[in-house]
Amino acid sequence: MTAAKEVIVIGAGIIGASIAWHLTRAGAKVTVVAGSGAGATPNSFAWINASWGNPEVYFRLRIRSMAEWTRLANEVPGIPLQWCGGLCWDLPRPELEAYAAEHSAWGYGIERVDRAGAARIEPNLTELPDFALYVAEEGVAEPVAATQALLADAERRGARIVAGTTVTALVQANGRIAGVDTSGGRIAADEVVIAAGAGSPALAATAGIELPIEAPPGLIVHSRPYEKLLNGLVIGDRLHMRQTAEGRIIAGSDFGGADPGMDAAATARDLFAAMKAMLRGTDGLELDFHAIGYRPTPVDGFPIIGRAEGTSGVYVAVMHSGITLAPAVGLFAACEILDGERDPLLDPYGLARFTQ
């Protein structure tokens, strides 16, 4: 390992923060510069899971990252991690059954529950499903606090955090990426990590690298802090919601948020009204604000993690499900950048797959 390797991480969201922390812990000289992303981390539902109809190879990456969350929370002071469980009934029963059978065979701890079981798990729901799935090992990490904890600990270990500065371009010299131009001047480095979320394609394009990424908007409503009404994640057929560590109930039409539509404020009011109707004891519950995040989603739905072929000195880490994947991506990216060792769990997610 080259302990003195200088690495710039563009992006101070959960993925950039995790990569920066792991690089710093491994001995690299790290500079974190905020990118031109659209703020996916603070607007995230923050559900940590290995759910949904993904292929087994992606399930294995997500399960590994769930385990890495526990490791990371033990190593970094102040990460707010809670394994609160997730109650899910947002698909027709035959699809839920098929999903449960498949994921149970892979080792996912899925429990089938009836209406009475759902009531025991979430007693304040006004509408109970006749059939649902419950996964006790799913959880949340409050995204802003977790990101801040990672960056603060990385800085304590020697990383440099450059705030109030925008990266304008990647710098090329002698056939490789040698740093970045910013609004505050040029910064040189041995390697540059692009982890700027929805802003990543524009940055990569300055070096002739195409990132096939979409950034759909998602609206999530946030209540004012309130008494505890929810025990864990509720993934219902009309609404996904959870209660944050500070007592806010947040909700979207799904975990990615609602379509903001032509009138985002009206969408937020309707969503909040639907949320209140789903819960008992909400007479005093008030809407505080709504937020719209842009989800950096590669066009095939899976992460882009790794070096760009044909351009040395640049590493890309862009994905939806950043909250779930952050600890494993940070660990694996640091190993690959510093030691050249690529974890097999990352093999399907290189950028070259889009040109093959």
Rank of each mutant, 00 (worst) to 15 (best):
L87D: 00
S312V: 03
T24M: 11
L133S: 00
I209F: 02
G310T: 13
A266H: 12
A173G: 08
A265S: 13
A98N: 15
A251R: 05
G232K: 00
A26E: 10
R156E: 02
W52D: 06
F289E: 13
Q172D: 05
L170G: 03
H290Y: 15
G306P: 08
N74T: 14
C335T: 14
A291W: 09
N49M: 01
D181M: 12
L338S: 04
I63R: 15
A116E: 15
V113E: 00
I194E: 06
N49G: 00
T244C: 00
G199F: 02
E336G: 07
S18I: 13
P129E: 04
G256M: 15
V171T: 15
L325Q: 02
I79T: 10
I63L: 15
H103E: 01
A67M: 14
V76C: 04
E68Y: 12
Q82M: 14
A12D: 13
G107C: 11
P123A: 08
E155S: 13
P216K: 11
I19G: 02
P123S: 12
S183H: 06
Y226G: 07
G175S: 11
A264Y: 09
P327F: 08
G184R: 14
R60V: 01
G322Q: 09
V140C: 03
T41F: 11
A205C: 04
L211Y: 11
L23R: 02
G322E: 03
L325D: 00
D263M: 11
D339F: 00
A3Q: 11
Q148E: 11
I8S: 02
D259Y: 06
G322L: 09
G107I: 04
L81W: 09
G313P: 04
E111D: 10
A34N: 09
P55N: 05
A264V: 06
P94A: 09
C84S: 06
P216R: 13
F289D: 07
V9S: 03
E6F: 00
N74L: 14
Y99R: 15
L87S: 01
T206H: 02
I337R: 08
I8T: 05
V32H: 04
V162T: 11
A277Q: 13
T165W: 05
A101Y: 05
H22W: 07
A28W: 08
D190F: 03
L61C: 07
C88W: 10
L287V: 06
S321C: 10
A101G: 04
D288N: 14
D259P: 01
A188D: 14
L338N: 08
A26D: 12
P92V: 03
G184N: 08
P129T: 06
P216M: 12
N54E: 14
I19R: 12
P260C: 08
T244M: 01
R295V: 03
E111V: 05
N231F: 02
A273P: 11
L170V: 04
S200Y: 09
V192K: 07
L96P: 00
V33F: 01
D90T: 05
D347G: 07
R295Q: 03
F131C: 07
A4K: 15
